[in-house]
């Protein structure tokens, strides 16, 4: 299933946040969206998954979601959004409970995603016992359990320390290599964008409009820290963003 954004604009009262966004998220690719803070990245993501209604334009689902998809557009949040009173297993099970699936299938789905995110040993732990990286892996497991067509990731690594971020990024790359999931990945971190993105969409500062779409035609596996091509693209992106980020930085909030 693809996701197509057509002429999307959004404003909160008088504040224009996004202007005329046109974007295509094709099956099997990761589209990274970067931009200075306050450019409407997160708003764009909320619009994509229907958590907010656009002022103008529309978001279209093209094609059918995969077989057994319980929630085609599924989020992974920056702050994990785990229920602190539920165990790892309980947090995954939460999003399966509302669907009429047999208990055996539910159990199978839980076991499967915990296996895939290497959390099987922590089934009964509660979020408070887990590190930030593990919490985000639980959130990813929860997202995978509904077999999504598109993963909408809102700065999933931003709340983590840099070492954990590296580890989890490797996990995401491995996961993509195995499953070729489709994703829209919001980040302010250029390194994440060039490591994970097949397409990098650069937004301007508010009102956010698309400045540039950079396609990176290199297998994710080869994009190591020391790769000069990757570093080059990252530099190129930073040159594009630098002025915008500076200007956004001195803007008054509100």
């Amino acid at each position: 299933m693809d996701l197509r954004v057509e002429g999307l604009s959004h404003r909160y009262d008088d504040l224009e946040v996004l202007r005329d966004i046109n974007l295509e998220i094709n099956a099997g690719e990761i589209v990274c969206v970067i931009g200075p803070s306050g450019c409407g990245k997160s708003t764009l993501l909320r619009l994509l998954g229907g958590l907010e209604q656009p002022s103008e334009g529309q978001v279209l689902q093209v094609g059918e979601p995969p077989e057994g998809s319980l929630n085609p557009l599924t989020y992974v949040f920056q702050d994990f959004a785990l229920l602190p009173w539920r165990s790892v297993e309980g947090n995954v099970s939460l999003v399966l409970e509302g669907h009429k699936i047999p208990a055996a299938e539910k159990e199978a789905r839980i076991a499967d995603v915990l296996e895939r995110t290497r959390l099987s040993d922590f089934r009964n732990a509660v979020p408070k016992q887990l590190s930030g990286g593990m919490k985000q892996r639980v959130a990813i497991a929860r997202a995978l359990s509904v077999n999504p067509a598109v993963l909408l990731m809102d700065e999933p690594l931003s709340a983590l320390d840099s070492q954990t971020r590296e580890l989890l990024m490797d996990d995401l790359i491995d996961l993509w290599e195995r499953e070729r999931f489709t994703s829209c990945y919001i980040t302010h971190n250029l390194a994440e964008a060039v490591r994970l993105g097949h397409k990098v969409v650069v937004l301007s500062r508010r009102p956010g409009l698309i400045r540039e779409v950079v396609e990176i035609d290199m297998p994710l596996k080869e994009r190591t820290l020391s790769n000069p091509v990757v570093a080059g693209i990252q530099q190129q992106l930073w040159d594009m963003m630098r002025k915008e980020a500076q200007a956004a930085d001195v803007e008054l909030a509100g």
Partner: peptide
């Protein structure tokens, strides 16, 4: 954020109240 999470996974209103809001 927890309530938005519930909505984003398509939980029903009753489930959001019963499993997220009240606990």
């Amino acid at each position: 954020a927890l309530i938005r999470m519930g909505q984003s996974f398509g939980l029903s209103r009753v489930d959001i109240i019963r499993k997220i809001v009240l606990p």
